[in-house]
Design a protein around this nucleic acid. Structure first.
Ligand SMILES: [Mn+2]
Ligand SMILES: [Mn+2]
Ligand SMILES: [Zn+2]
Ligand SMILES: [Zn+2]
Lengths: 153, 153
DNA sequence: ATCGCTATTGCAAAGGGTTGCGATAGCAGG
DNA sequence: CCTGCTATCGCAACCCTTTGCAATAGCGAT
């Protein structure tokens, strides 16, 4: 019987998180218990998380977790490309975990729902700014507000 | 000799700020010294301001100005359509004063410069989301990040 | 001019996020 | 294993913004 193939990257044996410790040390930084805690939390999740949620998750594993250390570690992981921060509709921080193909978000001020911007749609926006202004947009950094199809006055 | 014509709305005799007091009272709200102070500050400016700047300007005219009152008055003025809030690249609040034709903003993470999105360019983005998703975008609510033409690696 | 209703204020506290600083503790080397 | 350098930590303080609450003060009516 052949070994079962993992369905997602998160279930497979190899994960970018496995190399986190090495990469941190290789860059002259230190592998500390606080950083290990955050990496374990992030490894167990996918998609998006708010900074506040991450602090809460870390505190579950280590009661002594401090916000400033989490924020500083997130900055470090962002430098390594393991997370990428953005802002929700209210300006609060959100993190994309393992941002391979990052995407933008839409928020409806009518119903409060959010959607991910599909690649085709995002491409139109990116190309408009690129061709008209030579500006390379990072759509994933902010949540664009508006009204969804179901919420027009 | 004919009277000199004002060059801008800000210099003309008639301004939406003149009706602010009436409109506030007409809605059942009260015209207070604190609100008068903020309206005077806003009347003397154009374009964009951060909430923090507004608080500082109010404090110049009235040393006793309190942040919470300024924020609450800004909410009221936003309901009346006299200002419109948005968020800078870092998520902090910015206010568009007298938002007749509101526009979006671009921020370059390379050089830190910001630009207003021109109407033609904004229209492309608005139409893309409208036609593909039926979503009516409010481009003025966030500052879109990226790299300007002069800052490509 | 006075009265009463209630909108508004100032304050204090809290949540989200950043930063300077002295103390701690990785980790490379002997 | 011990030592020393310095990256990192925890803390306290601060900035930005919101909210509950008791006291104040608009303003319409008498
Ligand atoms: Mn907002
Ligand atoms: Mn940001
Ligand atoms: Zn909606
Ligand atoms: Zn630039």
């Amino acid at each position: 019987m052949p070994p079962k193939q993992p369905a997602t990257a998160a279930e497979s044996g190899a994960s970018p998180w496995d190399e986190a410790a090495e990469r941190i040390r290789a860059s002259g930084f230190r592998w500390t218990p606080q950083r290990r805690t955050l990496v374990e939390v992030l490894r167990a999740r996918e998609g998006h998380v708010t900074a506040t949620e991450l602090i809460a998750c870390c505190r579950e594993r280590d009661q002594t977790t401090t916000p400033s250390t989490v924020y500083r570690t997130l900055d470090l992981l962002e430098d390594l490309g393991l997370v990428k921060h953005g802002h929700g509709h209210d300006g609060h921080e959100e993190y994309h975990i393992l941002p391979q193909q990052v995407h933008g978000h839409l928020y409806c001020v009518g119903c409060g729902a959010t959607w991910e911007i599909r690649p085709e749609t995002g491409a139109v926006i990116v190309e408009a700014l690129a061709s008209q202004l030579g500006f390379t947009v990072d759509l994933s950094h902010v949540t664009i507000s508006g009204r969804c199809a179901g919420c027009h006055d």
